[in-house]
C-alpha cells in the first residue's frame, strides 16, 4: 500500500524513519494496554453474567474491594512488607555468597574441579524438596523462609558467576601479568569490571528465584506474608484473597525486576 505524505513539505528520510519508529512504539504500547483491558473487561463481564462462578474465579471488582479491605485493616502492609523483606534479604545473601564463592572457585582451579559435580547436583535438585527439612531444622519463622529463598537461587548463581568469570579474555589477564600484576590484580582490574554485565543479568534471575523460594517457604512455614495469605485463603475458600495476593505478588516481582533493570541501564549509560 502506498501512502503519500499530507504535510506540504515532503519528509526527509530520517524524519520518515523517526515517524515510523514512533508509530511502531505507540502501536505496541496500545496493544499491550488493550490486552490488559480486554482481559479485565471479559473477566468482569463473565462474572457478572454468571458465565463463570465468581465464588471460585473472583472478579476485578471483588479483587479491588478485597484490596481496599486489606489496606484498611493493614493486613496488606504487614504481609507484603514481610514478603518483600524476606525476598530482599534472601537476594542480598545470594548475591554476597554467590560472589564470594565464585571468586574462590576462580582463584583455585583445583577447588572448582573438586566441587563441580556437587554444584551441578545441588543446582538441578528441586529445592522445594528441601523446604520440609528446613522447617524441622530451623522451626517456622523468618529464618526458614530466608534459607528457602537462598536455597533456590544460590547454586545457579554460583555456577553462572563462575562461568562468567572464566569467560573473560585470557589475553587481558596476560596483560595484567605483563604489567607486573598478580592474580589479585587480574581479579580486581579485569575479571570484576569485565563481568559486570554478567553480574547484573545474574541479579535479574536471582531476584525472581529468591521470590519463588520465599513463597514456597511461606506456604509451609509462615504466619504472615503473601504466601501464607494464598494458602490460608485457599483453605477457607476465600478465593478473592488468594487472587488479590497473587496480583500483589505479580506487582512486587515486576517492581523488583524494574529496579535491577534500572541499575543495568545506569551502568550501560556510564560505560
Amino acid at each position: 500500500m502506498r501512502t503519500t505524505s499530507k504535510t506540504p513539505r515532503p519528509l526527509s528520510n530520517q524524519e520518515k524513519y523517526e515517524h515510523f519508529h514512533r508509530k511502531q512504539h505507540r502501536i505496541i504500547t496500545l496493544a499491550r494496554l488493550f490486552i490488559l483491558g480486554f482481559f479485565l473487561a471479559a473477566w468482569e463481564f463473565s462474572a457478572c453474567r454468571g458465565y463463570i462462578d465468581s465464588f471460585f474465579f473472583s472478579s476485578p471488582s471483588k479483587v479491588t474491594l478485597c484490596f481496599i479491605d486489606m489496606v484498611k485493616d493493614l493486613t496488606f502492609f504487614s504481609n507484603t512488607g514481610v514478603t518483600l523483606l524476606e525476598t530482599i534479604i534472601s537476594f542480598m545473601l545470594v548475591f554476597l555468597i554467590g560472589m564470594i564463592s565464585a571468586t574462590i572457585l576462580w582463584y583455585s582451579r583445583r577447588c572448582s574441579e573438586i566441587l563441580e559435580p556437587y554444584l551441578v547436583v545441588l543446582n538441578s535438585l528441586p529445592k522445594s524438596a528441601l523446604a520440609p527439612l528446613f522447617i524441622v531444622w530451623l522451626g517456622t519463622g523468618i529464618n526458614t523462609i530466608i534459607v528457602a529463598g537462598i536455597s533456590v537461587a544460590i547454586f545457579g548463581s554460583i555456577i553462572n558467576l563462575y562461568t562468567g568469570f572464566k569467560q573473560v579474555d585470557e589475553e587481558k589477564i596476560k596483560l595484567i601479568y605483563t604489567l607486573g600484576g598478580k592474580k589479585r590484580d587480574a581479579f580486581l582490574k579485569v575479571i570484576l569490571p569485565g563481568s559486570i554485565p554478567t553480574i547484573l543479568s545474574n541479579m535479574k534471575v536471582n531476584i525472581g528465584l529468591a521470590l519463588v523460594g520465599v513463597i514456597i517457604g511461606e506456604f509451609l512455614a509462615a504466619r504472615r506474608g503473601l504466601g501464607y495469605l494464598i494458602i490460608y485463603g485457599s483453605q477457607v475458600f476465600q478465593l478473592n484473597l488468594v487472587i488479590t495476593s497473587i496480583i500483589i505478588l505479580c506487582l512486587i516481582a515486576m517492581g523488583l525486576y524494574q529496579i535491577i533493570q534500572g541499575l543495568e541501564h545506569y551502568y550501560k549509560k556510564k560505560v
Binding site: 579474555d169 589475553e171 587481558k172 596483560l175 601479568y177 605483563t178 592474580k183
Partner: peptide, 16 residues
C-alpha cells in the same frame, strides 16, 4: 607470576 623483572616491558599483539 611476572613482575619479578620490572626492567622489562611486554607489548602484546592486541592493545587490550
Amino acid at each position: 607470576t611476572a613482575g619479578i623483572c620490572p626492567k622489562m616491558g611486554y607489548m602484546l599483539q592486541h592493545d587490550h
